[in-house]
Design a protein around this nucleic acid. Structure first.
Lengths: 143, 143
DNA sequence: CAAATAAAAGACAAAAAGGTATTAATATCC
DNA sequence: GGATATTAATACCTTTTTGTCTTTTATTTG
């Protein structure tokens, strides 16, 4: 469904959302440990997301990554779009470039309904919403 | 969603289903042209599917690939399972190996519902069902 | 200002996916 | 049975994805 890169990205963003409550920042090492990902790899991904404005960062002592109030409202769909592109939301299930309403592939209509479902699910899911259950260890980001 | 390999596989199988009505066979060149795919690449994929019993083939003059009555009942889910594996149907959306009901990732429940939807959609879609609309040029397998 | 800390950037490496070309095996037809 | 047509198998190449390592830049603190 998602690329490995995107899986890491989502996990990292949820982790950062949790940790950056109350204005805290979290370092890349802690993030990598917290989501069980290669440190430099997730660093590069987060730098990308930072450039695109999805999260903030600060260098130097006591620096790290964090989300501002707006960042907490970022949806999983926003992350997926940046990391994996629009294909999941708009592409043809059978990989046909010209597939459309007027020139549909054999599974166009069924697939479209599914895509819509996925998209709306991911759009509804905001980073800020996952914190509470993580805190209570009702959900997990590792392994 | 699906790998390129899997997209080709599905398109090829639908194409073969259409062409093998009435006991006909269809050659690899015609298949490659018919679904706009690299000839040798789709050949390898079909050989795989053949070994797994999803389609039949014959060598020699007037040989080619074809589906028997049972093959026509093959679902898209069967193809996806063989080509891309079970991950799409059972894997964690965030790539966590230990994600489960008792140790769920933050999107486990929503994702599970989606996966189920995808799976049942693909299980319902049988190769034999696509022929008619293809015949009428209401659907397409190229471009 | 110097030292320490942490992200940013870039170069490189390994693995997986996607694709090509060549040769072997098998069935048909004369 | 030999020529031909067609799939099967094998080996190889290219591109993309995933992952690692090193160096640079920015920030803080003593």
């Amino acid at each position: 469904m998602f690329s490995k890169t995107c899986e890491y990205a989502i996990r990292a963003m949820i982790f950062i959302a949790q940790k950056s409550q109350g204005g805290n920042k979290v370092g890349i090492k802690e993030i990598a440990r917290g989501i069980d990902s290669p440190e430099h790899f997730i660093a590069k991904i987060l730098q990308d997301l930072g450039r695109r404005g999805l999260l903030q960062s600060m260098k130097g002592p006591n620096g790290g990554f964090y989300l501002d109030a707006q960042g907490m409202q970022c949806s999983l769909a926003d992350i997926v779009k940046i990391v994996d592109g629009e294909k999941l939301f708009t592409g043809c299930g059978l990989g046909l470039k010209q597939c459309s309403e007027t020139q549909p592939c054999p599974i166009h209509h069924e697939f479209k309904a599914m895509r819509k479902g996925i998209q709306s699910m991911l759009e509804k899911a905001k980073l800020g919403e996952f914190t509470e259950e993580l805190e209570k260890s009702l959900t997990f980001l590792k392994r």
